[in-house]
């Protein structure tokens, strides 16, 4: 029951991207700020680009930008691309399940999935940005 490295790094990179003022953000900058290897970030962004989460621009001033506003982009859409699958037990319908097993699927495993999905769908990149600035403010005050 773990989120993969791709999921964790990818989400961090997308939030970092959303926090920048400039139009296009280079992967090298994200890599440096987030302490993620450039090559790994490139492979993650090729997934995100193909899935339409980010848009890439070529050229000397090129880089990446979010395909939607931060308020329109929720974490479920992003993690689904990065993780492939967010279900606790896999989404395919298994064959020849005993009554007890399908009962537990409906009453326990699907309920967990539904609650995870709910949290991720109602949390947008904008929420994450706001929470992060709050957290940084309190860190700053704690340091005073």
């Amino acid at each position: 029951m773990k989120i993969s490295t791709r999921g964790r790094y990818g989400l961090r990179a997308v939030i970092d991207l959303a926090m920048q003022e400039e139009e296009c953000v280079s992967l090298a900058e994200i890599a440096a700020r987030q302490d993620i290897s450039f090559n790994y970030l490139e492979s993650i962004f090729s997934y995100l680009r193909r899935a339409g989460i980010v848009i890439g621009t070529a050229g000397s001033l090129g880089g990446y930008t979010l395909s939607k506003t931060a308020a329109e982009m929720n974490l479920y859409d992003i993690l689904k691309v990065l993780e492939g699958e967010l279900s606790m037990t896999g989404s395919h319908e298994p064959e020849n399940e005993t009554d007890l097993r399908s009962f537990l699927r409906e009453e326990v495993w699907d309920v967990i999935d539904k609650n995870i999905e709910e949290v991720l769908k109602k949390t947008t990149i904008k929420h994450m940005k706001e929470e992060f600035s709050k957290q940084e403010d309190s860190n700053f005050c704690a340091g005073l």
């Binding site: 961090r12 987030q34 302490d35 609650n115 995870i116 994450m128 957290q135 940084e136």
Partner: peptide, 18 residues
């Protein structure tokens, strides 16, 4: 950069939901 992680909040919230 763990002390300024942009993600951790959501992992905490997911853990609570589970």
């Amino acid at each position: 950069v763990r002390s300024s992680c942009v993600n951790r909040q959501i992992w905490v919230r997911l853990t609570n939901a589970i």
